[in-house]
Design a binder for these strands. Structure first.
Lengths: 229, 229
DNA sequence: ATATAGTGTGTATTTGTTACACTAAGTAGT
DNA sequence: ACTACTTAGTGTAACAAATACACACTATAT
């Protein structure tokens, strides 16, 4: 094993794939690294786990440092433990995906304490990534593809009030395929967890769509932990 | 943080939930611990990850030490990283489930290098477990419940040649519910990945059932990575 | 007034899911 | 040889869900 940085031995880190949905595109937040190794490369936001925090707490902290927000929806999905994944020593990393509503104001102002800058980048156009981060991202996308079929995670990416077309776009971009409008609406409404509001979309130059919101209460009552899209 | 065992700081371990299917029962292999903490308690087999092995390799090694076998089907499913899950220091553990064919000869002869003894125990009748191992087990069972619906893992628990009734029993015991015989057969055969053999069950005191085997080749060709039970 | 762009809706067809019960075949005992 | 026993093996009807598909409506901008 590498002796370069003995303090790295058996270190545990967290990496986060923070997804956002904006203008019909699925994006992730990447940072530009400030330090070797992979200085100036794009990377997933991440950090070492501190002795006094659980891995979940560590992920929360990293997301908080990045965005200034608490209570971001996140879930652990895989641990990457190849011996040589970090060039300076042994670092096992626990990966989380996280989902964020990108309202237009706050979308591009992450704090940048541990990187030169951070930027939302379309998942279709990712630059080369540091370490094994491309692999980590791929597996994360795979996970949300699966989980959007039984967990109501689409609504974590949307504003509180949304149109059915927006929901459909989230499903389409995550699943990577077009869906039929009528069938989609029938299905998503059939779950009985969307509440139609007495309110219409604003600021569009065409017929305004009805707004809905996700009813967590009904969801919990009807499905407990999961539905089946 | 605990200073009792400073070498424990940020250690990473592996724990394995090794499932076996025997006489219609789903069992896991537990060890009786030889050392403090939790001396004499039952626990999941596990060990620290060594500096020169990946987490996957570490899990393989542990399974090999336990059973003498290589190439056991296994998959990582979650990492448990609460600060106080280990009383003597910080140990983050990566959990794997593994699936084993229990043929009658080899079933109860695991090597016991890091435990007093090891024993197959019905998952319905688990004793109290050391650490947070009950939690780790629960989450593992949940995972295979989900994954048996889209991965051909049932066949990992069965001998190479098996009857359809045996397959059904595996599904029933993992999903925790009875299934209709005719509907089950229709469905499992409709996948087109079972090969009917010119051979019957032996040694039974009633009409012998036809034997089948799982055709990995066809499976890969038809489904690539997954089907949908 | 009209062009434009997205909203919102119904039905027929196909496919999959569920519920359900009897006969066939082999073994063991007499 | 017969009988009793135990599991294997099979079909269909009713219902539910998934799919494929097209047009009129409405708000806005010009």
């Amino acid at each position: 094993m590498k002796e370069v940085l003995p303090t790295f031995n058996s270190a545990v880190s967290i990496d986060c794939v923070l997804f956002g949905f904006d203008e019909g595109e699925l994006k992730i937040l990447l940072i530009e690294r400030n330090e070797e190794p992979f200085k100036d490369w794009w990377a997933l936001p991440g950090n070492l786990v501190k002795p006094d925090e659980s891995v979940d707490q560590s992920a929360s902290r990293i997301l908080h440092e990045l965005t200034g927000l608490s209570n971001i929806y996140m879930e652990q999905y895989y641990t990457f433990g190849e011996v040589n994944r970090h060039p300076q020593g042994r670092v096992i990393t626990v990966a989380y995906y996280a989902l964020l509503r990108l309202s237009n104001e706050k979308s591009l102002k992450p704090l940048t304490s541990f990187a030169k800058k951070a930027q939302w980048i379309n998942v279709q156009q990712l630059p080369p990534l540091a370490f094994d981060h491309l692999n980590i991202f791929d597996k994360g996308l795979e996970k949300i593809k699966r989980r959007i079929k039984y967990l109501p995670i689409a609504f974590e990416l949307l504003p509180e009030k949304f149109t059915l077309t927006q929901v459909q776009h989230v499903y389409e971009v995550i699943l990577g395929k077009k869906l039929d409008k009528r069938n989609f609406r029938k299905k998503i409404l059939s779950f009985g967890v969307l509440k139609e509001l007495d309110e219409k979309q604003k600021g569009v130059s065409f017929r305004a769509a009805t707004l809905y919101k996700f009813d967590r209460r009904k969801y919990a009552k009807l499905y407990g932990k999961e539905f089946s899209f």
